[in-house]
Simulated scan of single mutants.
Amino acid sequence: MKPLLFTVPIVLLSITATVKGQSDNFKAYKQKLPGSKIEFNMVPIPGGTFKMGSPATEKHRSSDEGPQRTVKISPFWMASFEASRDAFDVFWKDESTSQNSDVDAITRPSAQYIDLTWGMGKEGGFPVNSMSQRAAVMYCRWLYQKTGIFFRLPTEAEWEYACRAGSTSTYYFGNNEKDLGQYGWFSTNSANKYHKSGLKKPNAWGLYDMLGNVSEWTLDHYTENAYSKIPVNAVDPKTAVNPARYPKVLKGGGYDSEASELRPANRIKSEPSWNKRDPQVPKSKWWLTDGASVGFRVVRPLKQPSPAEANAFFREILGN
């Protein structure tokens, strides 16, 4: 097993904002991607309390969105854009990392047998798509190895909290889905393809494409009654963690989703059918042949875990 490396810690700051009431170091910054000229913006998400899920009166509400729970979220940074194909390719093509290995702690995806972007766009700011939750988590693990900074996927509680940005309406901009086209790409306006990140309006915290474009993986394993098991006044809840591949929770909806699926409270569960056309035996653990609208974005907790805690976290999520 290759040891994790912690010899290249970098925090390159391009300060654009400071969140009131938080540490002076809790600011927006640009994260350099080692081995490339790529950088991505990390936005500070202040800690706070919100109601997770949707009220019984919300239009298009599903039963798995409740009961609503008041939860407290600790501060973290979230990438302003969905992870890009450009950034993911640095990981994918890193020859210092083993490919498709079951032995090494850090491993990268096997080659795609066809172009799973389906001609929608690659370089130049398009979101990465068609990858499994495992591939997204392993990208975060690779980032940790390369930078010494702990990145991961958000929990679904963190994702909804960041998306709402203090709002309590159906969407973070209000209740009228007719305004949705100003904020996201979905079935009505996408021309059945994803688009470059950042072309629509952001939410109040400066996060782009939280609604539509590509659905975003969270850490959580999907169970229909998950919210009923969250304790009253819980802090940083995870509804479930399970190394099993299916089903996992995604949020935000994609370019092929209906407006109702883009509601911040909506929960999307992954399914084996997303890989039904994969000719490999066994099916790829990295790529989704029928998940073209599936992507992710990263978060960085303000309180960083110790190396032992970080390694334990990745083992739990990945089941190794």
Rank of each mutant, 00 (worst) to 15 (best):
I268W: 13
K248D: 05
E261T: 11
P272I: 12
L262Y: 07
D256I: 07
V249C: 04
G252P: 00
V249N: 00
L262H: 04
R245D: 08
N266H: 15
V249A: 01
D256R: 03
A259Q: 10
S260Q: 14
A259G: 04
S257N: 14
P247E: 09
S273T: 11
Y255P: 00
A259C: 05
L250W: 01
K269Y: 10
G252I: 05
R263W: 06
K269Q: 13
I268Y: 10
P264F: 03
A244F: 03
P264V: 04
A244Q: 14
P247F: 01
E258P: 00
V249T: 12
S260V: 08
E258D: 14
R245Y: 01
L250A: 09
I268L: 15
A259S: 14
A265H: 05
E271N: 15
L250K: 08
S257P: 01
P264D: 09
G253H: 02
R267T: 10
I268P: 00
E258Y: 12
K248F: 01
E261N: 07
V249L: 05
A244M: 11
I268C: 04
D256L: 07
A244G: 05
K248S: 00
L250F: 03
I268F: 07
L262F: 07
E258V: 08
G254Q: 01
N266D: 10
G252C: 04
L262G: 03
I268S: 06
E271M: 13
Y246R: 06
Y255E: 08
D256A: 13
A265S: 15
S273P: 00
E258F: 09
G252N: 07
A265N: 06
S270K: 06
K248Y: 10
S257Y: 05
S273I: 11
S273E: 14
I268Q: 12
A259V: 12
E261P: 00
Y246Q: 06
E258N: 12
P247V: 05
N266Q: 13
G253I: 08
P264R: 04
K269F: 09
S273Y: 13
P247K: 03
P247G: 06
L250G: 00
K269S: 11
N266Y: 15
G252K: 02
L250H: 03
